[in-house]
Design a protein around this nucleic acid. Structure first.
Lengths: 143, 143
DNA sequence: CCGAATCCCTACTAGTTTACTAGGGATTCA
DNA sequence: TGAATCCCTAGTAAACTAGTAGGGATTCGG
């Protein structure tokens, strides 16, 4: 019932790219350094995110990775599911479980509750909140 | 980001005891059979739930396990945390993470959303819903 | 065309966790 | 006493986690 380190790394990498904003590619080495992620491990993660359609890349001297869509169209849930697989509270319905078990319905509720957070939080949101936070003192007009 | 089989077994076992209701102990063998759980595995699970204070037991010929408190005072979250450990989305805050990371706040939201379901669903609720469901046709006076 | 920089791809691995199984010991009670 | 039950320790095959290693394929400036 937790998120893998790999998943957390993926989130941090996409956050880094979102924060960067501009369309120029960012090098793996730079992301690894800024987010303190082992570089070779990060390579695999970014490849996985690319093949999920969330990132693009370019090789060569000015190469790197970049977002394949704007940050307000990538959610935390997207990335987590791409890396850690679909969230299945229990391989519902348990193969040999009587069909009147009360649990599948509860797992649905859990999934919906979770979805309300992770599928509604975009990286644009995260960057914005992070920017607000940087202005120490937390202004009043914050929601 | 899923629940272990062990956790699911624990829920089913406690549900079985809640459904049974009466204060007489239920034998491991019976729970294992009714909920299709490997018996020796279930023994470990029940021991863990007992040492968490959720179950009591009696040995000997008419022995078995029973709830240590009424089912409306045991939540799904209690059992899950006792078996699978505390829910920590990411070992927050990541040791080497800059303190202005946007993620800890998001994990808090996830945790609260989850808590709204698992810490508010008692086994009395589960049994009641399950009873309602058994009456095929699902009556109108249901919430 | 060269070669440096970068992404890309496959394979390997130590350590941990998961989902069990095995074998018996301690209690209870008729 | 002995049968039924819970109790306790240990072991274990398979999968998963969090990486590491080593090089191949592209790109691009010169």
């Amino acid at each position: 019932m937790d998120v893998s380190v790999k998943g957390e790394y993926a989130l941090r990498a996409v956050f880094e790219l979102s924060r960067h904003g501009r369309p120029e590619p960012v090098k793996i080495a730079r992301i690894a350094e800024r987010q303190k992620i082992p570089q070779k491990f990060l390579e695999m993660i970014l490849a996985q995110l690319k093949q999920g359609g969330y990132l693009g890349s370019r090789r060569g001297v000015d190469g790197g990775y970049f977002l394949a869509r704007p940050p307000d169209q990538i959610t935390v849930g997207d990335i987590l599911r791409q890396i850690d697989g679909p969230f299945q509270p229990a391989k519902r319905p348990f193969a040999d479980e009587p069909t009147d078990s009360p649990f599948p319905e509860m797992w649905d509720r859990v999934e919906r509750a979770l979805s309300c957070v992770i599928d509604r939080t975009t990286f644009a949101d995260l960057v914005e909140r992070w920017r607000q936070r940087r202005v120490k003192g937390v202004p009043n007009w914050q929601i």
